[in-house]
Simulated assay, not measured.
Amino acid sequence: MISISVKTLSSLLRGLQVVETIGSAQPVGLTELCRLLDEDKSALQRVLVTLHQAGWIRQLGGSPPRWELATKIVTLAGQAHSASSLLSRARPLLSGLRDATGETTHLALLEGRKIVVASVADGTHTVRTALPIGQVHPPETSAAGRAIFAHLTPAERAERAGTAAALLTAAEYDEIRTRGWSLCEGAVQSGSTSIGAAIFDITRAPQGAIVVSAPDSRLTSDAYASVGTLVRDAARRLSGR
């Protein structure tokens, strides 16, 4: 990739930071936003009015008024979700894996230091794992995070981990990498077990994971290897391997 030195637009960066902060703290008032962003009230008020005029945020009633994201964000996210090549290729694989196991399957993507649920195929059972798109999973303890971390260096794991003490040992990551799938037994959601396998981009760097999740009463230890193989194979197909 060619690197071009271009001066960034500080006002645009500030606006994007405000949108992200509102999204994580909504509904939120001006005073709280100033505290979270360490911004001057008058300057931040101009940003809020601009974002509101552009349709990205909306004001709730009450005194003092509070702000939340407008539906324009959801519309844009839906359009991106439908158009994404990776998500389009993942959907039939997730559905096939769901049909083979009867359990909820999802694609989780690595976004900076976060692991975010990007696509879901709901399980066929009445009692099943429920995962909303956009849910953030802990990289240290989730099946997706463990699968991804197995393909990172120790330094990269430490940099991305929120809690270093929750990381697995080097030997445990080696085992995940060798067999091709990871395991999470109730660490993210009590009573739920998940098995994941990493997917890779064109440079062979891990960019996410495919995961099967189910109540631990159905996904028991005697099924780990067979389900793990299915998840691993689906991840390899998505990665083009």
Rank of each mutant, 00 (worst) to 15 (best):
L168N: 05
W67A: 05
A166T: 00
A80Y: 15
D233A: 09
T124N: 15
V19G: 01
R113C: 01
R91T: 13
L86C: 08
E156I: 01
G61E: 15
T21N: 02
A197Y: 04
V117P: 00
D216V: 03
Q59P: 00
Q26G: 12
G196R: 01
R14M: 14
V18P: 07
H137S: 10
A100E: 08
H106C: 12
V19W: 01
I22C: 06
V28T: 12
S82R: 13
T153W: 13
H137I: 09
E32G: 09
D38W: 05
Q53I: 10
L13N: 11
T31I: 10
Y173H: 04
A170T: 15
A171N: 13
S142Y: 01
L36C: 09
G23R: 05
K72Y: 05
R35G: 14
L168Y: 04
S85M: 14
A161Y: 09
D38K: 12
S63V: 15
T141S: 09
R241Y: 15
Q189R: 14
V47L: 01
L37M: 10
P92L: 06
T50W: 00
C34R: 07
S42P: 00
T75Q: 14
A118P: 08
R91F: 07
K114A: 14
H52T: 11
S239T: 13
A77T: 00
S3C: 00
H52D: 13
I73R: 07
L16N: 11
L9D: 15
Q189S: 13
I199W: 02
G196T: 03
T101A: 09
V227D: 04
A165L: 14
D40Y: 06
W67G: 06
A187G: 07
V19D: 04
E175S: 12
S95F: 05
S192C: 15
K72M: 11
G62S: 12
D222N: 13
A80E: 15
P92W: 07
A130F: 02
Q189D: 12
G23A: 09
H125C: 06
H106N: 14
A54L: 12
K72I: 01
Q135K: 13
E103L: 14
L93Y: 05
R98W: 05
A118V: 08
G196A: 01
A223S: 12
L16S: 08
V47R: 00
L87Y: 00
A235T: 10
G23W: 03
I4W: 08
I195N: 06
R157P: 01
R14I: 11
A83T: 05
L33S: 03
G180R: 07
E185W: 02
S182T: 08
D122R: 14
G186T: 07
T178K: 14
G208M: 03
P215I: 05
I133E: 14
V136Q: 05
S88Y: 06
V136T: 02
S190G: 11
S88F: 07
L97I: 06
